[in-house]
Design a protein around this nucleic acid. Sequence first.
DNA 1: CGCATAGA
DNA 2: TCTATGCGG
Length: 338
Amino acid sequence: MGVSIRPLLEGCRHPVGFADIPGVAAIDANNALYQFLSIIRQADGTPLQDTQGRVTSHLSGLLFRTAHFLENGIMPLYIFDGSPPVFKARTIAGRRGIRQAGEERWAEALERGDTDGAYRAAMQSTRVDGAILSSGKRLLDALGVPWMVAPSEGEAQSAHFVNSGIATYSVSQDYDSLLFGASVLIRNLTVSGKRRIGGRQVTVSPERISLSEFLDTLGITREQLIRIGILIGTDFNEGIHGIGPKKALKIVRDGRFSGVMEEKAPDTDPEPIMEFFLSPPVIDEYQPEWKPPDSDSLMKILCDEYGFSPERIRPVLERIDGPQKGQQSGQMRLDAWG
DNA sequence: CGCATAGA
DNA sequence: TCTATGCGG
């Protein structure tokens, strides 16, 4: 999932709180849905679902997190993936294989009563399908929160909006938006500061990453950062076995990128990948609009349709329907936050 | 994940 | 006030 440049970010990951980052958050919607689906599960891996067996984990996650954003002056703009580039096909096929293996291991773990193993396998089986996407979009509509489908990668569109001023920062767990040029990336933007990794509870805090600071710290350009990504592997190519972030940094600094690619990955043409990161298909003109939440629709969708308890939903609606009325409802001017 | 509740 | 735990759908 995404490019693994984490070890290079030492010293560039600055802790932030919700209150520190008012503005328009360009959220990688597929990434957010994936996180909710993989994590919001019972101990044995069973996701939240209604009486008909439809999964509802993502609706719970979206609702509570979006409410928290709005309460803190963060204006969410959800950006969904459009058509992947052709060279992502291998990655997509690989993920399908991982999911299928996860499903099988989940069933096996349940059979032998291995709850922890079942949970981990269930996470691996996570899939963002059409039903998840459409129900998520309907919930966002009822919340009055804007969303769009990018022409191609959502992270690319997020980066474009951040750099054109439509958004203040990009929100994702992946680092890809940095390769796409997003000037600011916020990770771990969760309410509780808790995350389950490999079935274990870990405390993580929201962090802000500035692309320019990151590049300056390493003394490289964005083109060089993309070359590092290509060496270690991106969503669009496999990467070279035995080369991690540290080695890749050295290779790129030494100007040996092309040589190493030709020698170790002769079948991969880095040019289209480089080109895709530098100028991906994106939409330029877009005016996000935040509306007051439609409480009736929200109750109808969540409680009538998906079986959420009204007692759990009502307090959330009161939180987002009161304080921000007038201030944040209606059309927002982009310069509201400078 | 995020919320409510319980116990320190 | 804080941390641990269970539940939600």
